[in-house]
Amino acid sequence: MSEAQATPARIKRLIVSSLNLDGMRPEMIDDHAPLFGEGLGLDSVDALELVVALEKEFGIKIKSQEIGREVFSSVASLSQYIESRN
C-alpha cells in the first residue's frame, strides 16, 4: 500500500476536508499530536462530524460510547482503532 492510501494519510485528508480547516494541509498534521483541545484544537462538534466522516470513509460503525478520549486522541490512535475494526 502506498503512503497516500495508508490509513493515517486517509484520516488526515478526511480531517482537513470534512472539518473545513482553512489553510491546513493533511501533511501538516502530526500522527501523534492531540486532535482536541491543544494540538489541532478540535472541539465536540468536530468530533461528531469526524465520526460521521470516518464511518462513511471506512465503512465502519462507531457507537457513541466508543467516542472515547483514547481512540480520538490522535491520528495514530484513530488509525489503530480503525485497522482493528477492518
Binding site: S18, L19, N20, V45, D46, L48, A53, K56
Partner: peptide
C-alpha cells in the same frame, strides 16, 4: 456527496 453536518448547527 458528503455534506458537513455542522453546516446545520
Amino acid at each position: 456527496g458528503r455534506p458537513r453536518l455542522s453546516a446545520l448547527a
